[in-house]
């Protein structure tokens, strides 16, 4: 045996504490805590002034409530001062150099996947394109599928993209962004985003899953509180608007409901959203509404972490009680693919 325990195979070096260097040229000045507090506050304050417009925007798009109100009360005068003194110009220049125009549209994570090396983008006017009555996808003429949604939409989209890629005859585009929905177009404008996607992708099938972030007030003035008849009416209107836009190019649309939530309160709020989305789907031609609870819920359509598929128990929900696991995403993805095959009569393997 060449080495003893001290020369062990595992990491055998003593752990060193984060110490000050001893070389005279490297010796650092220390400071008292009060001066450090001044440094922290001053550094933070200068940063707030420099970054005021972004911070103000972030506050504006945060959920309606006391925190948002307070943040805006603090940031509005600072941002106004920053603009007056042209300080915000520094940030604008930086954003310009990074290609950010301050418009939220286009910030979604767009990933296009497909079996061919050719981009699926077509610049034709999407509004005049019509889907042929019989779609026969092949490797050279792949079916164009667009998947959009929020973070749960990403859970579905990641799995569905992989499933569709495996067929070899589908080009799947995922455009999804966390914490988005229909209630806060000031944060993320889905109709505008979808308009861009339609022009870029010219999809034949669109899969949409969003709504878990929507049980919140519409910002005003005046704010429209969640749960009121006005809110319900406006939300349904926005859902119809998005569905109408999605089908405007002739695409067939699958709207997947928000899955049941573990938290009873959140589940009740999500149920309201689902009901309104379902009613909206009934008003728009070529929209198929799928109830996700039928495949990843329990027999009563409520939250369950586990479902049995083909004799195998799958953990379909994340421990947060909200999101869907990759296995759950695959179950939802299969549900969407079955609908494409059986209801839309599109033969994909």
């Amino acid at each position: 045996m060449a080495g003893g325990i001290e020369e062990g195979v595992m990491s055998d070096a003593p752990v060193t504490m984060d110490e000050s260097p001893t070389h005279p040229a490297m010796v650092r000045q220390s400071m008292g805590w009060k001066r450090i507090l001044v440094l922290m506050v001053a550094g933070f304050a200068i940063w707030i002034v420099l970054d005021a417009t972004t911070l103000q925007h972030n506050a504006q798009v945060s959920p309606v409530g006391a925190r948002r109100t307070l943040s805006l009360q603090i940031l509005n005068p600072i941002a106004a001062t920053s603009r007056t003194l042209q300080i915000s110009h520094i940030e604008s220049i930086a954003n310009g150099m990074l290609g950010r125009n301050g418009n939220v549209i286009g910030y979604g994570n767009v990933t296009v996947l497909g079996p061919t090396k050719k981009p699926a983008v077509k610049s034709n006017s999407s509004t005049t394109t019509t889907v042929p009555t019989a779609i026969l996808p092949s490797a050279t003429n792949p079916l164009r599928v667009l998947i959009v949604g929020d973070s749960i939409g990403i859970d579905l989209g990641d799995a569905l993209q992989n499933q569709l890629a495996s067929t070899g005859v589908v080009t799947a585009t995922l455009d999804a962004k966390e914490s988005t929905g229909l209630t806060r177009p000031d944060y993320f404008n889905w109709p505008a985003e979808l308009q861009g996607d339609l022009a870029k992708v010219n999809p034949q099938v669109i899969v949409i899953m969003m709504g878990a972030n929507d049980p919140q007030d519409f910002p005003g003035p005046p704010d429209i509180p969640f749960g009121t008849p006005q809110w319900n009416s406006l939300y349904e209107q926005k859902a119809v608007q998005l569905m109408t836009l999605a089908t405007s190019s002739g695409a067939k649309v699958i709207w997947m409901s928000v899955p049941p939530m573990q938290d009873a309160g959140l589940n009740a709020r999500v149920a309201t959203v689902n009901t309104l989305q379902s009613e909206a789907a009934g008003q728009v031609k070529n929209v198929t509404y799928l109830d996700s609870a039928s495949v990843i819920g329990n027999a009563q359509g409520l939250f369950t972490p586990f479902v049995t598929v083909d004799g195998k128990i799958l953990n379909v929900r994340e421990p947060d009680g909200t999101h869907v696991t990759p296995a759950g995403g695959a179950v939802l993805g299969s549900y969407a693919i079955t609908t494409i095959q059986q209801k839309f009569k599109i033969p994909i393997p």
């Binding site: 001044v38 440094l39 001053a42 933070f44 200068i46 940063w47 970054d51 520094i90």
Partner: peptide, 23 residues
């Protein structure tokens, strides 16, 4: 950094935060 005036240090901290939040 430790040898700079407090005002310079504050500007450095603010600039660092701005770079991080912008990028």
């Amino acid at each position: 950094f430790s040898n700079q005036h407090l005002a310079v240090q504050s500007l450095c901290v603010a600039a660092g935060l701005l770079i991080i939040t912008t990028l």
